[in-house]
Amino acid sequence: MSPLAKLLEAALFAAARPLTFEDLASLDPEAGEMAVEAALGELRAAYGDDHGVELLEIADGWQFLTRREYAEAIDRAQFALRPRRLSPAALETLAIIAYRQPVGRLEVDEIRGVDSGAVMDKLVERGLIEVVTRGEGLGRPLLYGTTPPFLEILGLKSLDDLPRLDELSVALRRPAPIPDDDP
């Protein structure tokens, strides 16, 4: 491997979060974008199938993760803890925020049919959502959006990896009794 590829490998090994392309490029200011791109390609090739860890694209960055087949053994030996599972209420709230962002509490409450204030506070605390802006309406409500850690816990490269609404089996069909207002 080239010295630059080795440098990227070392940085990715040391980091506790996915490193973006900009993060990686900042390691060696001398190296051009093309060189970093090439080094990253080299690294990806090196970590093809022959290693216990994989280089994966997550949250707009790169991260070494152990292969899934070793999860049980690592878990059993208690070398690492699996993250806490999110409750159905938390996942519901995250789904709404992910698709409607920026979105205010009222809209989340309305869609879920239940007060979601406490759930949203917890999600903010865990860093999965954050206030991104203020709405135009009465009282200029806080509007929330998802954060990179949200992508990390789902192992997504970007929000585009979420299923498109028209891919869902219950893609929003217009219920028959509602007349189509569109001209």
Binding site: F13, A16, A80, R82, P83
Partner: peptide
């Protein structure tokens, strides 16, 4: 998705 991600451990994993 979260279940699949939880089966991969990252470097420097810290318990939430």
């Amino acid at each position: 998705a979260a279940g699949a991600r939880a089966e991969r451990y990252a470097r420097g994993y810290e318990a939430p």
